[in-house]
């Protein structure tokens, strides 16, 4: 059976478990709120992501290069070292913030 036919069939069956995974019991408002908060968090973190790589590492590199840490010019350091460390920090911050959010909405399955 094609995917499309499966979808039509399942849609008519009005089951809550169309896609084969456990469906959460959140109300539509809660879902919207959860998604909004996740999205706002992502936007903030992606701004930092953009700042340390594209802005510090490329666009403002000449200005930052006037400052130094040890033998590194600062802009060069961001481009070849610093941005990567910040990326790691961003992912782990996101992991822990999402864990808190999941707990708040009773979604953590641990």
């Amino acid at each position: 059976m094609s995917t499309w036919a499966t979808i039509e069939l399942l849609a008519t069956q009005k089951t809550d478990n169309t896609w084969g995974f456990t469906v959460t019991t959140l109300t539509p408002e809660q879902r919207a709120q959860y998604w909004r908060r996740n999205r706002n968090l992502m936007i903030k973190l992606m701004m930092i992501w953009f700042l340390v790589s594209f802005v510090f590492g490329i666009l403002l590199v000449d200005q930052l290069n006037m400052l130094r840490i040890g033998g590194y010019k600062l802009g060069f350091w961001f481009a070849q070292q610093g941005s990567i460390f910040v990326f790691i920090g961003l992912i782990f911050y996101y992991v822990s913030a999402m864990r808190r959010l999941d707990k708040e909405f009773g979604l953590d399955t641990e």
Partner: peptide, 20 residues
């Protein structure tokens, strides 16, 4: 310095991967 594109590009993708 020109080679920074590989360093930032091939690591920054993981931030997108983890979030999006």
């Amino acid at each position: 310095y020109g080679g920074s594109v590989f360093l930032m590009g091939w690591t920054g993708g993981y931030v997108i991967l983890a979030m999006l």
